[in-house]
Nucleic acid binder design. Structure first.
Length: 366
DNA sequence: ATGTTC
């Protein structure tokens, strides 16, 4: 039994269902602290946009099946003034197919077992995963931006993907009969889960790396990684274990917080002073406002596919799956400006820059 | 979320 802290200027905005889900996990025996972040929303049983800390136990299903899912942000070598939407769209082909490179070598190089290679390595996957090309809209902190050596005259690229089937297999193998019981932290079961969890985490990083490389190669450009963070994980923290379920780390340097595909994304710097009240974590995005089912039901009635292929900010969307394009519509997500304001209000972040979407790539395969 | 699915 533990208390819940909510990070929001106006906590009454939270969906009651997400709060019920958060309460249910706060009631787990052995749970010590639970935090709901500004992007909190109801998940498949477990609230997303939340952090859980326990002195004594580990709950694999609080991390979920997409272990290591996260965001990487790249400053490409492509000058912004040369960016042509039509040309770029035309060049992005074959990216849903398995990667033709050597997956085993890529994993070995990262210190991971080569037998974890699979055809999914180097592919985005489905759901809310994407690759997005962006431009710097506003630099909020010029001094910090310059000190980091960042450039506003380049095309930027954001990758959101995870560990695909691997993370799911790991959760499957360690699924608890009674979910709320979890695993005692020093048990052989915990050791076994954590080893596989760490491998899935590493796999997801390699996956994002290969995805970025493939997208750059198809455009004939290069890029440098500004950051790579994962928002589904469990890690040792203050003598216990910190579970992040759709929560970005606030203790690993720069963080990007993406809005929906029709909204801005942010490059932010975590502020250490107040970090503990949010369990050293930040929102991982805007958070859903509508479930996938609701989004499809409401939007497919009012809009056609062509409406969905453009956003209010003028960006284009490549998504040839006609269900997914509605499920992931900007309308289904909360206002990212509100999420950022909540984090600023709590003294958790300083905004460095705001990025405008140019082109969001989901899938060409229907 | 998913080498997914009757």
């Amino acid at each position: 039994m533990s208390s819940i802290s909510l990070i929001a200027n106006d906590p009454s905005r939270f969906d009651p269902l997400s709060l019920d889900q958060l309460q249910a996990t706060a009631d787990y025996e052995g749970m010590d602290r639970v935090v709901g972040l500004p992007d909190l929303h109801a998940g498949n049983g477990i609230a997303v946009g939340a952090v859980f800390w326990s002195r004594s136990r580990i709950w694999p299903h609080l991390v979920g099946s997409d272990i290591g899912c996260g965001m990487s942000l790249w400053e490409t070598t492509s000058p912004l003034r040369k960016f042509r939407l039509g040309t770029v769209e035309r060049k992005l082909q074959g990216l849903d197919a398995p990667w033709s490179g050597n997956g085993q070598a890529a994993l070995t190089e990262a210190g991971l077992p080569p037998e974890l290679a699979s055809p999914a390595l180097g592919t985005i996957g489905g759901g809310n995963h994407f690759v997005e090309f962006q431009r710097i809209e506003v630099v909020a902190d010029e001094a910090r931006f310059a000190a980091l050596g960042l450039r506003h005259d380049r095309v930027w690229m954001m990758v959101h993907s995870g560990s695909r089937g691997l993370g799911q297999a790991v959760l499957q193998a360690h699924r608890q009969l009674e979910i709320s019981r979890g695993i005692p932290k020093k048990s052989p079961e915990a050791t076994a889960y954590l080893a596989q969890h760490d491998a899935a985490l590493g796999w997801a990083v390699v996956n994002r790396q290969i995805i970025a490389k493939r997208f750059c190669e198809s455009l004939g450009i290069d890029g440098r990684k500004v950051l790579d963070i994962c928002h589904n994980s469990v890690s040792p923290h203050q003598g216990g274990w910190l579970h992040r379920k759709g929560a970005a780390p606030a203790d690993q340097g720069l963080v990007t917080i993406p809005g929906s595909r029709g909204d801005f994304s942010y490059l932010v710097e975590p502020i250490a002073d107040n970090a503990d009240k949010a369990l050293h974590s930040l929102a991982h995005g805007a958070g859903r406002k509508w479930s996938r089912k609701d989004a499809h039901a409401r939007l497919s009635r009012r809009f056609n596919i062509a409406d969905m292929q453009r956003t209010a900010l003028g960006s284009h969307v490549i998504c040839e799956d006609r269900r997914l394009i509605f499920e992931e519509a900007p309308h289904a997500y909360k206002d990212i400006g509100m999420v950022i304001a909540d984090l600023e209000g709590a003294g958790l972040i300083r905004v460095i820059a705001k990025l405008r979407p140019l082109l969001s790539y989901k899938t060409r395969a229907a």
